[in-house]
Amino acid sequence: MEKILIQFAVLVISFFGLWFLLSRIDFVDRDQVEKFAAESEQKLGEVILESITLTSEEVNNKKLQAMLDSIKVRLCEGKQLDCSKIKLHLVRNSEVNAFALPDDHLVVFTGLLEYAENAEEVAGVMAHEIGHIEKNHVMKKLTKDIGLSMLFSIAGGEAGGKIARETARTLSSSAFDRDKEAEADAFAVEALSAANIDPQHLSDFFFRLARKHDQPEELVWISTHPDTDERAEKIIQLKKNYTIKPEPIFHTDWKEIQRLVFSYEEDDNDDLGDYDAEADSVVDMTEEVGADTVAVQ
């Protein structure tokens, strides 16, 4: 029996000893991998954003940008996040949607501003998307859905514009898995509470989306964020863990801001025909844009 125990001990020690000694070797140069990953993520974010702005124009209205920026700053300051790293983009699109892209890009569609009943609802959606950014859900989702090698070729411009557009579509119109959505919701409640914004608004937004039985195609955010009823209730539950002294984000009427969005849309609608034609022709040239990206590198 003693012999068996000794031999067992030798076997176990040799296994763990060999494992320990081998683990001392630097197989994975973490610094290099992280640097490479960061550079690729940055290029990936640029390529995907470019593919979005080829078909939907980025809004350059200073008032609207300042409005979204102030929501972002309020959220970041409450949670003490690095605000500067989140690159906010307002894109002219009637879909009720907002989504995160690689390299901390946050895209908000004008459709969301039109559909939201107040700035707090927009803040709720933005806090949720910042949650995806902070928890690095975007790269995890893309790595899982598309594969690391494909992501590197998109970032390198070798994959072509069509795949970049597909990747953008994946991020803008498909859901994260249930755990990640729950994690982003919890982050949103925490961020909103820290910023003295009542998370009830996000919950109301979810409920309102869920109550829409005849959902128009524009309500994309609901299709990418399933189980809205259940999640709205969970937000109310989570909210109880925080002490909130709600303070309004803006003292101006939300309808005023919405009018600004509508007027922007109307202004642009005047030459919409020209814009669309141009966009279409640009989309056809996406392959060439991909080639340019390689040249830039």
């Binding site: 494992w19 081998l22 683990s23 070797i25």
Partner: peptide
């Protein structure tokens, strides 16, 4: 490194 070492072992 721990994972790679384990797999080699």
């Amino acid at each position: 490194n721990t994972y790679v070492a384990y797999m080699i072992t």
